[in-house]
Simulated scan of single mutants.
Amino acid sequence: MTFRWSRWSPQLALVPAGLVTLVAFIGAILWTVYLSLTRSRRLPEYEIDWSEWGRQYERLFKDSAWQISLQNLIVLGLGSALAIVFGFILAAMIDREKRGESIFRTVFLYPLAISLIVTGAAWRWMFNPELGVEHFIHSIGLTWVNASWLARPETAMYGVILASVWQSAGFYMALMLAGLKSINSEIWSAARLDGVGLFRLYTEIIIPMMKFTFVTCAILLSLGVIKAYDVIVAMTNGGPGQSTYVPAYFTIQALSAKGNLGFASAAAVVMLLITAVIFLPLVLLTAWQQRRSGART
């Protein structure tokens, strides 16, 4: 039997990618799970005390900073969802106004070209009471305005959300604009002929037709929120106190500041579980909707 290179070459080309996935992704996950069951400190220990295998997880959920991190994760997720809302509104406005479309797309997409570190540093300066927006407002006589959100624990997280929405709204606008462009123009014409109002057109026709786009945006948003770290470091460094701790920041702090590898691994495993709980239902929902729409056609 002759060896057919054309048949085996695609499989051979996938071997390096498969090895990288197996070692760097699956292997790293299994190694992290294993370390979370040990008493590892600065250096890994590979002996598991099965009588106390959940010790790190018990410590984790009793830690007040971790509880704050989980609460902030919910707040950040709900607040960051505004980026999808604003992205859709901007996309709808640009799609209706054809003139200057390329200019507006460039302007709104520009924040995406800036790293989260730079974004966080810029917004930290804007919230600085001595140099930023508050200083300018006070200089024109509006001394009652308080815009130093990052200095107060009860408002610091809202400042982080504002910076995150500003940075990512343009990205979701681009996705929404692509979804709007894919809608058949005859649907718009038929709606205008039937006298359908603008609000009903979007809420009853356009948005349901873009459900796959919204699910995709939700998946990307959830992944970004769970791994949020750069903007926290740049804007607040977790402060004031621990008021802006999120799981990713907590995990890095447990590893670098506390030097507790086992504790940080437990936090990382819980982050992975949170990602799976949020991510997998969205993926399954998308696959189910695609299969349902395919069966109809």
Rank of each mutant, 00 (worst) to 15 (best):
R4I: 15
R4Y: 15
W5R: 15
W5C: 14
P10Y: 15
L12W: 15
L12H: 13
G18H: 14
L19H: 13
T21P: 11
A24N: 15
I26A: 15
I29Y: 14
T32L: 13
Y34G: 13
P44V: 03
P44C: 06
D49E: 08
W50L: 11
Q56D: 07
Q56R: 09
Y57G: 05
R59D: 11
K62I: 03
A65Q: 07
I68K: 15
N72L: 11
I74R: 15
G79K: 06
S80P: 05
L82E: 08
L82N: 05
L90S: 01
M93T: 12
I94C: 04
D95P: 00
G100I: 03
G100N: 08
G100S: 00
E101S: 12
P111M: 10
I117Y: 07
T119Y: 04
A121T: 15
R124M: 09
M126C: 14
M126I: 13
P129A: 03
P129C: 05
E130F: 07
H135W: 10
I137V: 13
S139C: 05
G141P: 04
L142F: 11
W144Y: 10
W144S: 14
V145W: 05
T155R: 02
A156I: 11
Y158C: 02
V160H: 09
V165W: 05
Q167D: 00
L177P: 06
K181I: 02
S189T: 03
R200I: 00
Y202Q: 10
Y202G: 07
M210V: 03
T216M: 08
T216A: 11
C217L: 11
V225D: 02
A228H: 00
G238E: 01
I252Y: 10
L255G: 01
A257Q: 03
A257Y: 00
F263S: 05
A264R: 03
A267T: 08
A276S: 07
A276T: 09
I278H: 04
V283E: 01
L284M: 10
L284Y: 09
Q289V: 11
S293E: 10
T297R: 13
T297W: 09
